[in-house]
Design a protein around this nucleic acid. Structure first.
Lengths: 208, 208, 208, 208
DNA sequence: CATGAATGAGGATTCATTCAT
DNA sequence: GATGAATGAATCCTCATTCAT
């Protein structure tokens, strides 16, 4: 038999996550400084005081928000890394597909937030750069290198090629949370992704 | 004899620009809400009260900052448009080269700022989307279309191909003002640009 | 058993009134613009921030102060109206007696305040003129007219006679909150009132 | 031949008066604290800096404004005093007539101003009470006493009777600069004065 | 645990005053 | 003398944080 799990308790456990979700939404929409904790509380359906039961300060909440948004990202990457043995072009397409899916989640709010607040939170900027960016770059570098070694890809400098691969995804994530909210210009992520991978992989094809 | 140009006057004319420059730097570094007007004043070398001689409110200063950062951008694009008749790959390389130069200026602070504050200033987001993004997209679309018609480029959907071209430049601009300040990870814009254009133009080459 | 009435709650309900009382005192003493909200807070025994829990802006506080000072005035007048059937001289003496009592309350601060700030708050001036002055004039006009019809008073133009009746009371109210605070000149409201009514009623006696 | 009187010079001499006039108008309209010196300067047709050529501080300007508005008042009263030998009722009518004329001038702004600012400027309140009010009361007291002694007036306490005489004039002066600006309620000063003197003098008639 | 009233430090804005021209 | 650009002290208002209930 399972141990009894009172609804109350489950609710309580979910609180921090609910609050962090609400905070992520508002921080990403308005920025950290311009977001009032009262609004976060309202959006999370709790009182202002309750926030302080879980997060000692606004800055702590901010860190929790990012930690919560970061870990899944990292894990997703670890999985991608596991899909080891396929040819580089296939791997890249797999990753692209996964990133396309991520575009539909609210994880996309994180990059905008880190970007906007890196000036005020150097520690977070450093952490994000070292934990997320560095790892992602290492992953992509190893994929590219392996592809080059195996002759699946043309010889290029991996460090320099990474932005070409990754930037359009970042741009779409940022767009979604900024100008995309305020303009008629429509971006079709799937079409963009496919054209992008098409151009990229042709551009990386070994000379025929 | 030259007409007498009192130092006071020369100073006065420059004030709004000096202030807006200081504001751009700080807004871009810390965000709009987190920037104290007193710091803007100090950085511009004036007193707090002087700001109000030129900008009625903090928000007006914000708008002026963006207007000042936008107009040069727009004009730069018009010039690019003028360079009409060259083959598409050449044109794209020209634009890439120009964007690489822009990366060295403080104009790169604008995108981060617009991005971060679009939620709080929808009018500015709209303006930026319509005036800057739309025009830039139209320009690139026409270049791609011409190139396709002339057989200089492979047939692709221009709308979907634009992010592949532009995103790495945007990413480098954002990087410079965010994580780039806080990490050892070095990005060499010139190398990235060259690899990027290399991949992109190969990826757009007509079938041989 | 009485329902528990937490001290906190009782306190809270009284707050707006306490604050408005403090504000009335200071506004009347120094004027609206010259009164610092911090002083109002101190006098009301609360902190600066607490003011804003109850009154969104300084101007709102001002309006609340006047509303609070106006309603009792109006009601007092309604009561006076009710004392209908006595002869006009008796009625006038009754009203005079009541006004004499009002002179001992802090309601007398209102006229000075309305007077001083009518230029900055036209809406309040209009409201006061229409709600308070107009009603008071209508009341006195009807008393005078009835007295004249009944032969209790000599025939005079009521509109023109009202200032003779009311002005000394107004003057004493203003005096109390202005010069009266700063001079040795003593005014004995009771004696003034009696002499005043004596002169007035003789002056209004029908020809003998 | 007259000494040459350059227009420039005459203008210069008038400056302080022009400025004080402008200040009186604005102080009386908005109160001392709520009046900006820049507005005074604009209304007087000079620059902000010029004010300081004539009045070292805002408070000095305030004092000058009142001094300028006070002296004529005092002198007017001296003249009234001089008209010594007429019977009291005649004298009172003369004074009433003169006050009626004063109602058409901008001197009427003074009482409102003194009233409103007595809390912030005790010295001025004292001065006004002692110089203006005291003297006016002494004058009226002597007139009433003389009238009583001569049997022209009924025996009353002069101190207590003065408000009955003077208050309606004060009230009309205040009205003109406050509610009178914001309501349809019309007050006809001449009719009020005549009815007032009519009631008053009948009320003071010796027993017939 | 949860609430929301209360607090006060911080920052935008105003305006009396100064002073170089 | 006259000007108006510049200054910074003063004050309104906001909001992160505390704490009695």
């Amino acid at each position: 038999m399972l141990p009894p799990q009172p609804a109350r308790r489950r609710r309580k456990d979910a609180r921090p996550t609910e609050i962090a979700d609400a905070a992520l939404a508002l921080f990403s929409e308005r920025g950290f400084a311009a977001t009032r904790l009262e609004d976060v509380a309202t959006r999370a359906g709790v009182s202002k005081g309750t926030l302080y039961l879980y997060f000692p300060t606004k800055e702590d909440l901010f860190r929790a928000v990012l930690r919560q948004g970061l870990l899944p990202n990292l894990e997703a990457m670890e999985h991608a890394v596991a899909a080891d043995q396929a040819p580089a072009p296939v791997l890249l397409r797999q990753i692209a597909g996964r990133l396309l899916q991520v575009l539909d989640t609210n994880l996309t709010a994180i990059p905008k937030l880190v970007l906007a607040e890196s000036g005020n939170f150097p520690a977070i900027a450093r952490m994000y750069a070292d934990e997320v960016v560095m790892r992602a770059m290492a992953l992509l570098t190893s994929i590219l290198n392996r592809g080059i070694e195996r002759g699946e890809l043309r010889r290029v400098d991996p460090q320099s090629a990474i932005p070409t691969f990754i930037a359009p995804f970042l741009m779409m994530a940022l767009w979604k949370h900024s100008l995309g909210q305020h303009t008629q210009i429509a971006i079709d992520p799937k079409a963009v992704m496919e054209t992008h991978m098409d151009i990229l992989l042709r551009g990386l094809e070994p000379r025929s």
